Simulated scan of single mutants.
Amino acid sequence: MPQVSFKTKLKLNNKQATLLAKHAGTARHAWNWGLSLCLTALDNKEKLPTAIDLHQRLVAEVKSVNPWYDEVSPCSPQQALRHLATAFQRWLVSKVSQKPKFKKKGNKDSFYLEGRIKISGNRINLPQIGWVTCHEIPPSVTVKNVTISKLAQDWYISFSYEKDIQTTAKIRDRIGVDVGINRLSTCSDGTEVENVKAYQKAKGRLVRLQRTLSRKVKGSSNRQKASNRLAKQHRRVANVRADALHKLTTWLAKNHSTIVIEDLHGSGRHKNHRLASAIADCGCYEFKRQLLYKASWYGAEVIVASRFYPFSQLCSEYSHQQQMPLHIRTFSCSCCGMKKDQDFNALVNLEHYTPAVSSTVVACGDSLVTACGQWESMKQEADLNLGMSKIV
């Protein structure tokens, strides 16, 4: 069964908010203390301590001189040390992340809890904290652990649980989807979803709030208030974008058996400084991430097409390939005379794309079926022969 995550905002009184802040502060203190020990061990070329070693030293050396550790759940600092060990593993062994850094108060505050957790209506009973109220009604499932985090002065709770696959009735067997800037998505069945452009619409207000923040005295309460207003506006932008993406990906996964999307080069597209802001505002990676896990929920299949396949150069009727400059927006086939919108023609080709076998046609109605890997090898061989001919 697939894993499903649930996250919602908490309604807290002053006492509960203070207790959550203590838990986050204790976890941050344990992380920074453990990070200092690990960095010292690396400088002295000693063996890196494990999470168990760090926790034993924490109990013996830190908790004995800091009585406020007893005011919070012991899971909070212990899990922080586990996360620290994982961070060093990802940095030194897997080499997929950067060097762990010291944490600062007010920046991504979070902590972990496990134990006796109950859900009743819109309330959750947490160890050492008690009953807290949620803005949404959580699912009635058995929860073993939760993560509580702070974002823009609001506290959020999240946990994961197993969910059965819900195979829904499909209105269409196969569909091709293209994510763009002017439109969030254009589908091969003619459906168009407008882009909400959350950041562009809020850019003026963000600029004013940032300018107001820069004029406040550092360390003052007015600067903290201005920072909170700016953070809330950024959170609103992210929520508007996420809401549009959730609605689109849920509709695609529920109503289509096979969804074909193109494998876009995200980091390369962001290097275009004229369009980088607009491209980032679309949330292309988040669209792909949501679509992949929601497809497993509703019994759909997602096919990620190769970015090198010539979708815009193939005739959608007979798969004849011809060169198509970007400034020409109407595809006019030189063999069969078919005329279609350039983007719609590419979407039809995207819909009929198959990952194992793809069709490349050298003449109208005269197809040559090759595997995708063979098509790539043919392209590399042609490039190699061209280079050899230049040398000769």
Results as ranks from 00 to 15, higher is better:
2 P>F: 00
3 Q>S: 06
3 Q>F: 02
5 S>Q: 09
6 F>Q: 01
9 K>Q: 14
12 L>P: 01
14 N>V: 07
15 K>S: 09
21 A>S: 13
24 A>Q: 04
35 L>H: 05
35 L>G: 00
36 S>L: 06
48 L>D: 02
50 T>E: 10
53 D>H: 05
53 D>P: 00
53 D>N: 09
56 Q>F: 01
58 L>E: 10
62 V>L: 02
64 S>N: 08
75 C>L: 10
88 F>R: 01
94 S>Q: 15
96 V>Y: 02
103 K>G: 05
107 N>Y: 11
110 S>V: 06
111 F>K: 14
112 Y>G: 13
113 L>P: 02
114 E>N: 12
114 E>T: 13
116 R>H: 09
116 R>T: 12
117 I>Y: 00
120 S>K: 15
120 S>D: 15
121 G>S: 09
123 R>S: 15
123 R>F: 03
126 L>V: 07
131 W>A: 06
135 H>V: 15
139 P>M: 08
139 P>C: 05
143 V>R: 03
145 N>C: 14
149 S>F: 06
150 K>P: 00
152 A>R: 04
155 W>D: 08
156 Y>E: 06
161 Y>E: 02
164 D>Y: 02
168 T>E: 13
170 K>V: 09
171 I>R: 14
173 D>P: 00
174 R>N: 10
178 D>N: 07
184 L>S: 03
186 T>L: 04
187 C>R: 11
191 T>G: 03
192 E>R: 14
195 N>H: 13
195 N>T: 05
206 L>C: 08
214 S>Y: 04
214 S>K: 08
217 V>I: 13
222 N>C: 06
224 Q>K: 15
225 K>D: 06
230 L>Y: 09
233 Q>F: 11
235 R>N: 13
236 R>E: 05
240 V>H: 10
245 L>F: 05
245 L>W: 09
245 L>T: 07
253 A>P: 08
258 T>I: 15
259 I>F: 11
259 I>S: 04
264 L>M: 10
269 R>M: 15
269 R>D: 07
270 H>L: 15
284 C>L: 10
285 Y>M: 04
286 E>P: 01
304 V>R: 01
306 S>W: 00
307 R>E: 00
307 R>Q: 02
308 F>N: 10
309 Y>Q: 00
314 L>N: 12
315 C>E: 07
315 C>Q: 02
315 C>T: 02
316 S>F: 04
321 Q>E: 14
323 Q>M: 13
324 M>Y: 00
324 M>G: 07
329 R>L: 02
331 F>G: 05
332 S>Q: 10
332 S>T: 14
339 K>Q: 13
346 A>T: 04
347 L>W: 02
360 T>W: 08
360 T>P: 00
367 S>R: 10
371 A>Y: 01
380 Q>E: 10
380 Q>A: 12
380 Q>D: 09
381 E>T: 07
389 S>M: 08
392 V>C: 11
